[in-house]
Amino acid sequence: MPSDTTQTFPPPETGKATHAAPAPDGRKRFVRLTAVVIGLTAAITLMLCAFGLPSANSGPHQVPVGVTGPQSAVDSLKAQLPDDEWDVTAYPDTQALTRAVQDRDALGGFSMEADGVTVYTAAAGGQQASGAITALGDSLAERQSSPATVHEVVPFPDDDPKGTGLASAALPMIFGGILPAVVLLQLFPGHAGLRLRLAGVIAFALAAGAAVTAVLQFGIGTLDGNFWLTSLGMGLGMAALAIPFLGLESLFGYAGFGAGSVVMMFLGNPLSGLGTGPYWLPDGWSTLGQLLPPGASGSLLRSNAFFDGTGASGPLLVLALWALAGLALMVLADRRHGKRAAA
């Protein structure tokens, strides 16, 4: 009996290889990988520019210096010094010049007399600028074939005469803003932990500011002045970093937190001028650095630790505005969450 069963056979080989269709998300992955590579390359380039360009162009940039003495000597000095490097102001006598240095109107100066040159410096106001003023005074005295006498108006303490501990405070101040934000975001995540994170950051800033100041003042001997005033300024600097980080994360997620961290690490740190003083950076870089929390924190630290608070109002305003901006971001995030909950 014939069978009704039919057999099927595979199609004959055509000699052509068959390829599976690419996964639908393959192109998206490639685009994402390309964007990551380009973004990381841009970040490394930005890091090099932020650290390298200011250093390559470092030097005196309109450093305020005073001069006193006979009018002819004062006029001669003004004519010799380049305007883009030195901002020269004449003072009636040495007492006025010394007071200008103490009030931070000048970083140093020269008393031009017939029997020699007296150089006035303030190493605590900027180490490199102070050294350049001393070298310039020696050069002026050599031209007159007369001796140069150096007076340190505002020196570093004897335990740290070169101020090496001051430059080392830059990273603790920056990480003092980043680390508490990272830890508190992990321990108290989400909108429910918003106020706890803010309270934790403020408490940490006060405690860490006191601890770092104690090490610098009593351990290393770099700082001088009122301990509590200096520590409060240090704490404000840390809070002015940490609160905006929390605000960026609460409003934009970890992308906002990461962007803020990159800006402060790659721009705020090298442009702070903490180790050199702001007048040793190019004008534009210096201005930007003083408008960021690390630079403002460094200037406030110098004011409180060495100049009895003189010149502290500008940095205080900058830090307060950064802290308020962070609070504003947190308030916006809180309101956005409230609207979502009510919808």
Rank of each mutant, 00 (worst) to 15 (best):
G237V: 03
A170H: 00
F252L: 14
G190P: 02
F30N: 11
G165E: 11
D283G: 09
S297D: 03
G284Q: 08
L324R: 09
L236A: 08
T41V: 14
W322G: 05
L317G: 06
A208Y: 10
S168H: 05
I178S: 03
G256E: 13
V88R: 06
G39R: 06
F204D: 08
W228S: 12
A114V: 10
P155C: 01
A320F: 11
A135C: 07
A114Y: 02
A325P: 00
A35D: 05
G66M: 09
H61E: 08
A96R: 10
G66V: 10
A135L: 12
L246R: 04
P12T: 13
A320P: 00
I174K: 03
I220W: 10
D87I: 01
A124E: 09
S58H: 05
H191I: 07
R104W: 06
F218R: 12
T41I: 12
G219C: 05
V262I: 13
C49S: 12
A259R: 09
L324Y: 01
F9W: 14
V153Q: 13
I133Y: 00
Q95K: 12
Q128P: 01
F257D: 01
R104D: 00
F307C: 09
T8I: 09
G26E: 15
D25G: 08
L316V: 12
M238L: 14
G277H: 07
T276M: 07
P12A: 15
S111V: 04
G298F: 04
L274D: 04
F110V: 12
S299R: 13
D115G: 07
A320I: 15
V150H: 10
L281I: 14
E142S: 15
G338K: 15
A35I: 11
F266Q: 12
A342M: 11
I44D: 00
T89S: 15
L327N: 03
